[in-house]
Every structure is written in C-alpha cells, then in structure tokens.
Design a protein around this nucleic acid. Structure first.
Lengths: 166, 166
DNA sequence: TAGCGAGGCGTTATAACATAACATTTTTGT
DNA sequence: ACAAAAATGTTATGTTATAACGCCTCGCTA
C-alpha cells in the first residue's frame, strides 16, 4: 500500500481523504491532543490535493468564501501541529506539504516526487534506513530527522513522454 | 577523506579552501566554462565557512568594504553556475549552500547536518544509492535528482552534550 | 458554576529566501 | 573592429515563513 491509491478516481480519492481524517481523529484522541476544527480543515485540504500543496495554497483555499481572509500564521501553526503529530510531512525541496500515509507508526520516509506531474509517493524501505544508519554510524553521527526527497519521473509521465517522443 | 578536515585548524582550513579553488579552476578550464572573478569569489566565500552558508550571508560578505552593496541576483546567479558545475550543493532543508568535496565525479550525495553546530558532512555510500535506486525501480520511478539530508548530532556535539549532562 | 490558566487563534508586521525583467558591460569569435 | 553571446548590474517584486501581541475558548479546580 502506498500513500495514494494508484488509479485516481474521484471516488477512491474521497474515501482516501475520509480515511485519513478518521485515522487522524482517533490518533489525536488517543494521544490527548486537540484536532481542532481548523486543524482538521487544514489536514483535509492537504489530503484534498493528490499532490503536495504549498502553505499559501492552503491559505487561499481556507479563505475561499470566508468574509475575512485567513493569515499565514493560521496555516503554519496548523501545519506545525500536524507535523508534530506525524500527520503531514514537509517536503523541503519543493516547499510543500503532503499527508502522511502511515501516521500511526513512527518512521523515516523517503519521497519520490515527479517533476512533471508533481505526484509524490511516500516510500519506506528497511534497506534505505539501514544503509543510512550504517553510514551515519561510521561518522559517529546520530540521526534525529531525515529529509530524503528523490525527484524524477513517475511511471505514467515516463510512459507519456516516451509516447510523445515517438 | 571527507569534505572537511576533521580537526579545524586555521591552517588546514586555508589549505582546504585553496585546494578547492584550485580544483575548481582546473575543472572549469577543462570544461570550457568561465569561472569568473565573481564566481570564484562566491565559491571562496562558500568554502570559507566550514558550515553551510545562506545566500544572504554570502551577499553580506560580498558587500563588505565595497562602495555599492551587491544585490541578491548577483549571488544567486553565481550559486546557480556553481551548482550546475557541481562545485556547490544546495541544502534545501536549511536553505544553505556548501562546497562540494568531490566536484570531479558526478554523484548523488547525502548530507549529515549537525543541528547543534551546523557542521555538515557530505557522505557518499554505494549502499545508499543502491537501496534508493532499488526502491525507485519498484515503483517504476526514474530518479534524476536527489536531496538526502539527515539532521542530528555530530560526534563532537554528542560528546559535549553528554558531558554537559553529567 | 465562577474563575483561572493554558492552549489556540486572530491580526499586524516583518523577516528570510528567491527570481523576473531589463539595462549595461565584458568577452569571444570572426 | 564588429557583432553576437555571455555575464553582471539594477530595480522591483514574488514566495515562503515567523515574531510579537492580544483576545478568546476550553477544560480544570475550587
């Protein structure tokens, strides 16, 4: 199971969002932290996009239809909370945020970010963690946080590009 | 050999800068690209710090003692050139730049960034590349660019912290 | 259930990082 | 020496993120 369902039908996308929110509510309740209306709304907006979203995009969507526009700190604070709880990840190489597909288990994720369609896969593989850990150990370095972001072409875009070239 | 010499004496630091600039000149000459005075100056400033430096820090140092202050594009263009030539790396997780320790060989580097002293090691290990490649292949993903940045504590800082705690 | 304290949010302002667009200068090939 | 291309200067602005302060709300305890 990868973060996003492979065929992006509107239906399973909706279900995907719904599941993520449901998981988040349970997780926050269990931890005794407050998933407020605002925070949940931000989380929903993050999941609504099947690609990573920028903070200011969220801000714009949050403002949609409201009388007074929301301000940056509103979004950033919510994102900070969601990151602390492991519900979203920040992709520093593109300054964007994406819902975490496995919020329950603490983990170091890697991301495959398609430069063409921006679709991003959260991958997790023991061998990556192992080799990084081994490398860090060699240098006496203790890892506390990782940012592993691989840019390139996803299957679809590579195929399409090949077709376009023919 | 890692990017920076382990004991930071002023002497080997100077030699380190000198070597890096020398390598860069040769490399640019061989490639038929122009390492202009400005570009070389920026490269020198990047190396002068034994830690990653921000673009605006470079800008400030560049402006030091000059009548007219330099402007951001001046620095960013130089940095772009240096990155294209593989002479510096950008660390997106901390918005900073660092001299590349192995500019000759094309490679995907990983970085160990100490959150305490900001000292950063450029590491390269076949096993990391391999496991990432394998993982990407599993997803039909073609990697074109990597950003692998591991934050944590370096040997020194971990030791010191332990001492401080006692 | 009143009051208090912490956490969450609104609001204003600004910091930090980066680039677009166009003018001018320098370099290079002919 | 000239024209074209590359590099740099300059002005303005875009984008991302945070500091600081005040008010409000929620949950706890007396």
């Amino acid at each position: 199971m990868t973060g996003q369902p492979s065929p992006y039908t509107p239906h399973n996308h909706k279900r995907c969002i719904h599941d993520a929110l449901h998981k988040a509510r349970i997780l926050c309740r269990d931890r005794g932290v407050r998933l407020t209306v605002l925070r949940e709304k931000v989380l929903e907006l993050v999941w609504q996009s099947h690609c990573p979203v920028g903070a200011y995009e969220i801000l714009a969507e949050l403002t949609q239809g409201e009388s007074k526009p929301a301000q940056p700190p509103t979004v950033y604070r919510a994102l900070d909370f969601l990151q602390e709880q492991g519900l979203v990840h920040r992709l520093s190489s593109i300054n964007a945020y994406i819902g975490c597909s496995r919020p329950n288990t603490p983990h170091h994720s890697s991301f495959l970010i398609c430069t063409q369609c921006r679709t991003t896969f959260e991958i997790e593989h023991p061998s990556i963690d192992q080799s990084l850990k081994a490398c860090a150990d060699d240098h006496g370095f203790t890892i506390t946080d990782t940012s592993i972001e691989l840019a390139g072409l996803c299957t679809n875009c590579r195929t399409n590009r090949r077709i376009n070239k023919l």
